[in-house]
Design a binder for these strands. Structure first.
Lengths: 156, 156
DNA sequence: GCCAAATCGTAGCCATGGCTACAAACCCAA
DNA sequence: TTGGGTTTGTAGCCATGGCTACGATTTGGC
């Protein structure tokens, strides 16, 4: 989703800058900002795991995403270079202030989408799965509409 | 989105099979089926371009996605090996029967999501952008709910 | 018919996220 | 304290999708 511009502050470039600066055509979506999505998924997961178990280890994330610890480790390096997490060899992972901010924004959006799907009548299981995929692609405008719908439903 | 199982027939594995067969944990989404999304985007674009201009060239796709012709060319190779398109050096791209099937399924889902967002009250511009990102992550169940909502709205 | 422009392919680079295999650090328990 | 299990890191592989540079093919206009 590439961190929608009108979002809160603390926005960072979540991908390494390519050698040659591109023409930056937002024309059609600039080609999957996959790396940004990963960043959001990870900070969100870290925040959640810290909440549940007080500390987040590499293995926890590996389990969470069902990938090898190596993959987690390398992604954490990237996130560290982006200033989202702090790591120390063989120590638990911590979120930076920026990472926390991104995590809470991501969680909020995640919850909004999930609750909307539930309000729409989707089963909890499917809603959980679909939310995972959808959340990164919902603009602030659409997000407002989803919230409005969920609110209306809750009252009716 | 990995071609949801309950979909129509003609389903293919849209990614190269890894050397070591994985444990296949659909647990958490198995890690972005990014390649499948690309496949869907491309067959859908090809179908659209063929409709508009009667033939689809590599350059057309490059323009459509705002990427270099090299990227398009390589992706087309992959799609060809998947049996979705037929290419001949310096000739227009054609969809196979399988490619056509996938394209129509993708378009249908795309339209469903777009019309839903419009019915929700999202602006056409934003709806178009968000649909691009969302469409690959909507399950058949959610799709049915979206359709139901749009129908209701249309009548009310 | 021929040359230039447009189109396309190949080579080769990069970033990202998968993996296995192996080595290092850490920590608890005997 | 020492030994083994758990946790991490490193090396090195692969697939995908970005790119530039350069060469080949096709095609249209003169």
């Amino acid at each position: 989703m590439a961190i929608y511009p009108p979002s809160q502050a603390g926005t960072v470039a979540l991908t390494a800058s390519p050698k040659t600066s591109q023409v930056s055509v937002p024309h059609r979506r600039t080609r999957r900002d996959h790396a940004s999505e990963t960043a959001e998924d990870y900070v969100e997961a870290i925040a959640q795991i810290v909440n549940e178990r007080s500390a987040c280890r590499v293995v926890d994330l590996a389990g969470h995403f069902a990938v090898s610890h190596v993959t987690v480790s390398r992604i954490l390096s990237r996130l560290e270079s982006l200033g989202l997490v702090e790591t120390q060899r063989y120590q638990p992972v911590k979120l930076t202030r920026q990472g926390l901010k991104l995590a809470s924004r991501s969680k909020e959006r995640h919850d909004t989408v999930y609750e909307f799907l539930i309000a729409l009548g989707v089963s909890p299981k499917t809603a959980a799965i679909d939310t995972e995929g959808i959340e990164h692609h919902v603009s602030p405008e659409t997000l407002r509409r989803l919230r409005a719908f969920t609110r209306r439903r809750g009252q009716a």
